[in-house]
Design a protein around this nucleic acid. Structure first.
Lengths: 342, 342
DNA sequence: CCAGTATAGTAAAACGTTTTACCAATAATA
DNA sequence: TATTATTGGTAAAACGTTTTACTATACTGG
């Protein structure tokens, strides 16, 4: 087999400990022996084995990435991109990512992810909404955690979040800049902080522009913000407030559903009713008109999550810092100025 | 800290070895002591540490996934889906995937991926075309390898491949079934076995239908099969063979480029010229007309690769088996029967 | 010149498993 | 009954590092 630390020690005529100290850049070793050891390492093509290191140092060099099964399949491109962001940044910073999904109704008696049981990760990143019982179980084991695109209502954790409030304001302000005044909001599941924050951004933008908020221009009783509920919410909204001239949907899925409804009813988008979504998913480009939206840099969410995690691992303090990742307005064809055709 | 094998041994009043044997389902242990040990394990919530196991057993429970940087970025959705397929299946089979990218011009002196140096994987899956020097270096270390969507020209390795020949025949036969007879082929980089095989499928379908092959209906001098080269290849083809009534492009990217050219020249697709691609990528749905294509199940490629790898790891024989993943014809709007409007 | 203090290096324990060789007790065989 | 197998279990070595406590040597200041 290949060289071990023992072989290096023998060749450099030093003790094993000395080699170890050199590897770990301990200043206790003089320059001359350091060079001698490094030479032996080079000549033998030595590289320390992860398993041996991990056994005694209790560091694995791995970071766990956990999300629920339905998040992975339902929001596939979104969380995939966050995951790829973590992968990318982890590689830079000499870590590896271990991915796993959990069932959304994780019970306190459910079996933990294998990498937790095996103590094969130094920390865990939770992506999206995850069961509270799972969080508690992992925390109880003293494993550092970082949240991305979610923060549990209870407690105070390090988290990387989309700047949803600014995004909501940005979207709404864009519609206002288009001359729209009767702006509706389509949302689902207010329990989800992201959606609630986007709604807050909507409210704040209205207020800032001295546009009175009208309760009947808001539909938020859909349980899950997907395409179908966007379709239904649009129908409800139009029944309550037939005069809306713009829609801010809490995400692109709902926006696309709403758009579909409007097209079926032969309402002119964007002239008669402009519509803007949130997230910037691939499908936005496949529809006609292409959907204006608020772009979320998903990879950046992952990158920031890794950086935050590694900072925590290196400082081993609790630092429940929140990082807000900025968003960007993407103007496409589903929004336009009201003056253009009056 | 949490329980170790020692604690279990003490509580069950057996030796450490016995506990280990129970964990590893060794039949040497009697049912009664086995139960006693299992009880202790349950009571102490014991789970063996990966690092300690790995140190002595020389198994890591990890599988490396290597592809070149440009494959990851250029063909992003394609290889991402293969990767997700491996992730998914690995989880089922109690492995983890460690992902890394390498530079496309990996030199024999380049630094190997860290998980190789650290001996942190039991085997390596190569996705797409990878540098030969890298393959050789990894093989030289005795690490089992599996290829997916590529097989190096030299040697004989286990590989999971798209059934490109059948796919090429399927695509061409579909055009023939549409009544087309003057069918062009657009390809790039013939060095790539996939593309070459698709071309062979094209040839075979023509032959089977007794349609003479015409050299000037083929353009294959584009270096890289992307959208731009599809555009250019289409231009060249039309110059050489203005009478083509159908196009089989070696992949969707080229097909989309060709489609763009035809639209700019106001050629009627699909009536005048039908066009079919290969891969079935997301963008196929965003174009008008939506692209007919040969669907490749990317996740399935990854799943099969993992299964093959684990079979190899468990049998530790060399088994250079090839697995062909079948493809499927997807009829959309870019192909139609020639009789429809004659 | 001597006690005290850096400096540079080492020996040995520890990390938590698997595995190998061995042993005792029991069963099977001649 | 004596020998040989078989069964069920154990002791101890090994895996390849890090880390802690210790030592020898050289230096420093009084």
């Amino acid at each position: 087999m290949s060289a071990t630390i023992k072989d290096v020690a023998k060749r450099a005529k030093v003790s094993i400990s000395t080699v170890s100290l050199v590897i770990n850049n301990n200043p206790r070793i003089s320059e001359s022996t350091r060079q001698r050891v490094l030479k032996a390492i080079r000549e033998l093509n030595y590289y320390p084995r992860r398993a041996a290191r991990g056994l005694v140092s209790h560091k694995t060099g791995n970071i766990g990435f956990i999300l629920t099964e339905d998040h992975f399949s339902r929001h596939e491109p979104f969380y995939t991109r966050i995951f790829l962001g973590t992968e990318f940044e982890a590689r830079e910073l000499e870590y590896y990512i271990l991915l796993t999904t959990v069932h959304p109704d994780f019970k306190p008696t459910s079996r933990l992810p294998r990498f937790i049981l095996e103590r094969n990760v130094d920390g865990v990143i939770f992506a999206g909404k995850v069961p509270d019982s799972l969080i508690q179980l992992i925390e109880a084991r003293g494993i550092p955690v970082v949240f991305v695109d979610y923060h549990p209502p209870r407690g105070n954790y390090p988290a990387v979040l989309i700047d949803n409030i600014s995004g909501g304001m940005l979207a709404t302000q864009h519609l206002i800049d288009c001359g729209r005044r009767r702006i509706g909001f389509l949302g689902g599941d207010f329990d989800h902080p992201s959606i609630y924050d986007r709604y807050q951004g909507y409210r704040q933008a209205l207020e800032r522009n001295h546009i009175p908020f009208e309760d009947n221009r808001v539909v938020t009783d859909e349980p899950y913000p997907d395409r179908i509920s966007g379709y239904q919410a649009m129908e409800k909204l139009l029944a309550k407030a037939p005069d809306v001239d713009a829609i801010f949907a809490c995400n692109d899925a709902m926006a696309l559903g709403a758009l579909q409804y409007l097209k079926e009813k032969h309402r002119n988008v964007p002239e008669e009713i402009s519509i803007i979504g949130f997230d910037d998913v691939e499908a936005d480009l496949t529809v006609d008109p292409r959907l204006s939206t608020i772009r979320v840099n998903k990879e950046e969410l992952g990158i920031q999550a890794i950086r935050l995690m590694i900072e925590i691992l290196n400082s081993d303090k609790k630092l429940p810092r929140k990082i807000l990742v900025p968003v960007e307005l993407i103007e496409r064809e589903s929004t336009c100025s009201i003056t253009e055709n009056r």
